[in-house]
Amino acid sequence: MIAEETLVNQLQQTETQASAFGVLVETYKERLYWHIRRIVLNHDDTDDVLQNTFIKVYKNISNFKGDSKLYSWMYRIATNEALSFLKVKSRMMGVSDSELQDRLVENLEADVYFEGEEIQLKLQKAIATLPEKQKLVFNMKYFQELKYEEISEILETSVGGLKASYHLATKKIESYLKEQKEYL
């Protein structure tokens, strides 16, 4: 794998920019795809947000100063793009953020790109009940298995705060799933 510094250098120079961008896309496309998918849930929306993310990265790479790692900078752009995509969507539909979350999860039932198993759907319903920050932390820790230090750099929050958010999120999801089980 190419060193991050070299890649950034190549991305910031006109002659090498195009090929370096290809490498960048290859390296990060899957990770960023899943990060965005867990926020917007639907494949087509994820595709839009992912492309916008990469284009934003390409256009702003000259402003990247190397204060943070390249990948956390990209994750931050992806997170912001995904969250603002949802904001625009809820405004266009004239619904609140939580109503939009409910609808996104409901739509999963008919989504061809979602395996309609009961437990997976319930898990998404449980995640949808979490506040935005807890949702992000939970997905990044539980599914993406990022380290707290990495999440802290992406979300610009303290490690202690993240641990608390993750703990709360896990407890809420577990009790939601348990409650659902008892109703059956």
Binding site: E26, Y33, D47, L50, Q120, Y142, E174
Partner: peptide, 27 residues
């Protein structure tokens, strides 16, 4: 944990293969 690790998300076949071309085109 009682929380499943499998999420159930799928994506179209060959999606990642065509992504780079799509991006270059868009740029």
């Amino acid at each position: 944990s009682a929380i499943p690790k499998k999420e159930g998300f799928k994506l179209p076949d060959g999606y990642f293969d065509s992504l780079s071309d799509k991006l270059q085109q868009k740029l």
